[in-house]
Amino acid sequence: MINTIKKIVMHPWIALGFRLYIGGLFVFAAMYKINYAAEFATTIASYQIVPYWAVNALAVFMPWVEIICGGLLILGIRVRSVSTIIAGLLVVFTVAIFINLLRDAPISCGCFHTVEDPISWWTILRDVTWIGMTMHIYYFDSVLQTDQLFLGKLKRIHS
């Protein structure tokens, strides 16, 4: 019984689902941020974690890292490296939200758009769920990967 559950939980198709979901999420989130960099900078600033001289640069670069990661994740390229980055970003976001929740800062998440509901413990829970999905991807994803398609055969080369 436990084994069956384990099997289901660890199934690569689930990982694939997570992969597409997280990938799409990041692409979607990044597109707005790229389009409205100034707003994203405001959002970052609202968290009061990043020093003021680095906020704009981060607002310019981070959405692009997100969109690249999202795209690569959807395509199944360098899945583990990408999921590492995504997990890292999510952890940073979560920690930032957590800090601001403790501060009782009146800010919205700014995860997708500038104007959203204020951050809450639900936001933390949502982000932690995403982190869990990302880790699942890291450990169990193996199907429909572009890397597998192009480089999988090279694994079979022996000396």
Binding site: A37, N56, W64, V65, I68, I85
Partner: peptide, 24 residues
């Protein structure tokens, strides 16, 4: 990937009319 993000972001921000100052 991070480097690509930095480069693309920089280029996009540079060429976009609604680009912002990298340093305030």
């Amino acid at each position: 990937i991070i480097l690509a993000g930095i480069v693309l972001g920089g280029l996009f921000n540079f060429s976009s009319p609604s680009g912002i100052d990298l340093v305030p």
